[in-house]
Protein backbone atom coordinates (compact mmCIF):
# COMPACT_ATOMS: atom_id res chain seq x y z
CA UNK A 1 0.00 0.00 0.00
CA UNK A 2 1.90 2.98 -1.27
CA UNK A 3 -0.61 5.61 -0.25
CA UNK A 4 -1.00 4.47 3.29
CA UNK A 5 -1.15 5.96 6.75
CA UNK A 6 -0.31 4.23 9.98
CA UNK A 7 -2.04 5.07 13.22
CA UNK A 8 -0.24 3.91 16.32
CA UNK A 9 -2.36 4.17 19.42
CA UNK A 10 -1.94 3.18 23.03
CA UNK A 11 -4.20 0.74 24.84
CA UNK A 12 -5.57 3.48 27.08
CA UNK A 13 -6.47 6.94 25.82
CA UNK A 14 -5.88 6.29 22.14
CA UNK A 15 -7.89 3.12 22.12
CA UNK A 16 -10.81 4.63 24.01
CA UNK A 17 -10.90 7.66 21.73
CA UNK A 18 -10.88 5.38 18.70
CA UNK A 19 -13.76 3.39 20.12
CA UNK A 20 -15.72 6.53 20.84
CA UNK A 21 -15.04 7.68 17.29
CA UNK A 22 -16.43 4.50 15.81
CA UNK A 23 -19.42 4.45 18.12
CA UNK A 24 -20.34 7.92 16.92
CA UNK A 25 -20.36 6.73 13.35
CA UNK A 26 -17.10 8.29 12.20
CA UNK A 27 -14.97 6.04 10.05
CA UNK A 28 -11.30 6.10 9.16
CA UNK A 29 -10.31 7.06 5.65
CA UNK A 30 -9.30 4.19 3.42
CA UNK A 31 -5.66 3.23 3.37
CA UNK A 32 -5.24 3.80 7.07
CA UNK A 33 -3.84 0.97 9.15
CA UNK A 34 -3.95 0.80 12.91
CA UNK A 35 -1.48 -0.66 15.33
CA UNK A 36 -1.86 -0.95 19.06
CA UNK A 37 0.88 -0.69 21.67
CA UNK A 38 0.50 -0.89 25.44
CA UNK A 39 1.89 2.61 25.80
CA UNK A 40 3.16 5.18 23.34
CA UNK A 41 6.33 5.19 25.43
CA UNK A 42 7.37 2.05 23.53
CA UNK A 43 7.63 3.87 20.22
CA UNK A 44 11.22 4.47 19.31
CA UNK A 45 13.15 6.19 16.58
CA UNK A 46 14.08 3.05 14.73
CA UNK A 47 10.51 1.88 14.53
CA UNK A 48 9.31 5.17 13.09
CA UNK A 49 12.19 5.55 10.68
CA UNK A 50 11.99 2.01 9.35
CA UNK A 51 8.26 2.37 8.86
CA UNK A 52 8.62 5.60 6.93
CA UNK A 53 11.47 4.13 4.94
CA UNK A 54 9.22 1.26 3.92
CA UNK A 55 6.97 3.64 2.09
CA UNK A 56 4.29 4.53 4.58
CA UNK A 57 3.20 8.10 3.85
CA UNK A 58 2.65 9.15 7.40
CA UNK A 59 2.51 7.98 10.98
CA UNK A 60 -0.03 9.37 13.38
CA UNK A 61 0.41 8.57 17.04
CA UNK A 62 -2.57 8.83 19.38
CA UNK A 63 -1.61 8.75 23.03
CA UNK A 64 -3.13 9.61 26.36
CA UNK A 65 -3.56 13.13 27.63
CA UNK A 66 -0.53 14.53 29.36
CA UNK A 67 -0.54 13.82 33.10
CA UNK A 68 -2.83 10.89 32.46
CA UNK A 69 -0.40 8.19 31.39
CA UNK A 70 -0.89 4.92 33.23
CA UNK A 71 2.88 4.53 33.10
CA UNK A 72 3.48 8.04 34.46
CA UNK A 73 5.33 9.63 31.55
CA UNK A 74 5.25 7.32 28.54
CA UNK A 75 3.26 9.80 26.49
CA UNK A 76 5.54 12.71 27.34
CA UNK A 77 8.56 10.69 26.32
CA UNK A 78 6.87 9.73 23.09
CA UNK A 79 6.01 13.38 22.38
CA UNK A 80 9.62 14.38 22.82
CA UNK A 81 10.87 11.52 20.73
CA UNK A 82 8.53 12.45 17.93
CA UNK A 83 9.62 16.06 18.14
CA UNK A 84 13.18 14.82 17.78
CA UNK A 85 12.36 12.68 14.74
CA UNK A 86 10.44 15.53 13.14
CA UNK A 87 13.50 17.71 13.46
CA UNK A 88 15.73 14.97 12.13
CA UNK A 89 13.48 14.49 9.15
CA UNK A 90 13.24 18.15 8.31
CA UNK A 91 17.01 18.48 8.67
CA UNK A 92 17.36 15.64 6.22
CA UNK A 93 15.25 17.50 3.73
CA UNK A 94 12.19 15.35 4.21
CA UNK A 95 9.33 17.29 5.63
CA UNK A 96 8.62 16.58 9.28
CA UNK A 97 4.91 16.57 8.57
CA UNK A 98 4.97 12.85 7.95
CA UNK A 99 4.96 12.14 11.65
CA UNK A 100 2.58 13.58 14.14
CA UNK A 101 1.54 12.80 17.66
CA UNK A 102 -1.46 14.10 19.51
CA UNK A 103 -2.95 13.22 22.84
CA UNK A 104 -6.57 12.36 23.46
CA UNK A 105 -8.90 11.91 26.34
CA UNK A 106 -11.22 8.92 26.35
CA UNK A 107 -14.15 10.85 24.91
CA UNK A 108 -12.48 12.80 22.18
CA UNK A 109 -13.67 10.72 19.28
CA UNK A 110 -14.68 13.67 17.18
CA UNK A 111 -11.38 15.42 17.70
CA UNK A 112 -9.47 12.25 16.87
CA UNK A 113 -11.48 11.93 13.70
CA UNK A 114 -10.75 15.46 12.56
CA UNK A 115 -7.10 15.19 13.62
CA UNK A 116 -6.64 12.05 11.53
CA UNK A 117 -8.37 13.65 8.57
CA UNK A 118 -6.29 16.81 8.86
CA UNK A 119 -3.18 14.71 9.01
CA UNK A 120 -4.24 12.61 6.05
CA UNK A 121 -4.83 15.81 4.10
CA UNK A 122 -1.46 17.20 5.11
CA UNK A 123 0.53 14.20 3.93
CA UNK A 124 -1.57 13.81 0.84
CA UNK A 125 -3.57 10.70 1.50
CA UNK A 126 -7.24 11.19 0.88
Amino acid sequence: MEESLLIIYCSEGGRKALQKMSSEGFRLPSGVCTFELPCTGRINDVMLMETLQNGVRGIFVAGCREENCKYLDGNKRALRRIKRIKKLLSDAGIEGKHIEMQTFGPDEGKRLYSAINDFAGKVGVS
Binding site: E12, G13, K16, C64, R65, E66, E67, N68, T103, G105, P106, D107, E108
Partner: peptide, 18 residues
Protein backbone atom coordinates in the same frame (compact mmCIF):
# COMPACT_ATOMS: atom_id res chain seq x y z
CA UNK B 1 -19.90 12.64 31.84
CA UNK B 2 -17.29 13.91 29.46
CA UNK B 3 -13.53 14.28 29.55
CA UNK B 4 -12.54 17.81 30.48
CA UNK B 5 -8.86 17.77 29.63
CA UNK B 6 -7.67 20.96 27.96
CA UNK B 7 -3.91 21.02 27.34
CA UNK B 8 -3.36 18.20 29.73
CA UNK B 9 -5.40 15.92 31.92
CA UNK B 10 -7.28 17.75 34.68
CA UNK B 11 -7.91 14.59 36.70
CA UNK B 12 -11.67 14.59 36.38
CA UNK B 13 -11.59 10.80 36.60
CA UNK B 14 -14.13 10.05 33.86
CA UNK B 15 -11.73 7.68 32.13
CA UNK B 16 -11.55 5.62 35.32
CA UNK B 17 -15.22 4.82 34.88
CA UNK B 18 -14.69 3.70 31.29
Amino acid sequence: YGCKASDSCVHCGVCLIR
